[in-house]
C-alpha cells in the first residue's frame, strides 16, 4: 500500500424542496474535472442527512446549494448539527440564490463563503484548494 496524495473529497448537497439542481450539477462536474472526489447527495436532503453524509464520507468540504429562499433556516440547522457532532474541520460553502444582505449572517455562523449566480467554477475550485484543512 503506497501513499497517495490526499484526494480532496467534497459533498455537494441540495437541501430544500425545490428541484433546481443545475447549479449543483455544474459545480459537481467542475470539481470532478479538477481532480476532486465529489459525493453528490441528490435532491431534498434534510440537514441531518447532509451532516451524516459529511461525517461518513469524511469530507474536506461541504457545498450546499440553496435556491428556495430557505437558506436562513437550513444553514443554521446544518451548522448546528455539525457542531453537535464535533465536526469542526470541514469547509462549508454556499451557493444558489442568496441575497447579499444575508451573507454576513451566514458567515458569522461558520459558512466560509457564498458563491452566487455568475461565479466562475474555477473560482470555487481555487477557493476550495486554498481553504480546506490540510490532512496530515
Amino acid at each position: 500500500m503506497t501513499e497517495q496524495p490526499h484526494k480532496i473529497r467534497v459533498v455537494v448537497a441540495k437541501p430544500g424542496l425545490d428541484g433546481h439542481d443545475r447549479g449543483a450539477k455544474v459545480i459537481a462536474r467542475a470539481l470532478r474535472d479538477s481532480g476532486m472526489e465529489v459525493i453528490y447527495t441528490g435532491l431534498r436532503q434534510t440537514p441531518k442527512q447532509i451532516v451524516h453524509t459529511v461525517i461518513q464520507e469524511d469530507a474536506d468540504c461541504l457545498c450546499v446549494s440553496i435556491l428556495s429562499g430557505a437558506h436562513n433556516h437550513l444553514f443554521p440547522e446544518i451548522m448546528k448539527l455539525l457542531r453537535e457532532n464535533e465536526v469542526s474541520d470541514v469547509l462549508v460553502l454556499g451557493g444558489g440564490i442568496i441575497p447579499p444582505e444575508d451573507v454576513p449572517g451566514l458567515k458569522q455562523i461558520g459558512v466560509s463563503e457564498i458563491f452566487g449566480p455568475g461565479t466562475a467554477t474555477f473560482d470555487t475550485v481555487r477557493y476550495i484548494r486554498e481553504h480546506v484543512q490540510p490532512r496530515a
Binding site: G16, L17, D18, R44, T46, S68, G69, A70, N72, H73, L74
Partner: peptide, 22 residues
C-alpha cells in the same frame, strides 16, 4: 410555495423554512 408544489402541508417537517417563500 415549494411545500405545496411537493404536496406537503405547511406543518410538515419538510416544509420548515419554505412556507410562503417562493
Amino acid at each position: 410555495d415549494l411545500p405545496t408544489l411537493m404536496g406537503y402541508d405547511s406543518d410538515h417537517d419538510y416544509s420548515r423554512g419554505e412556507v410562503g417563500r417562493e
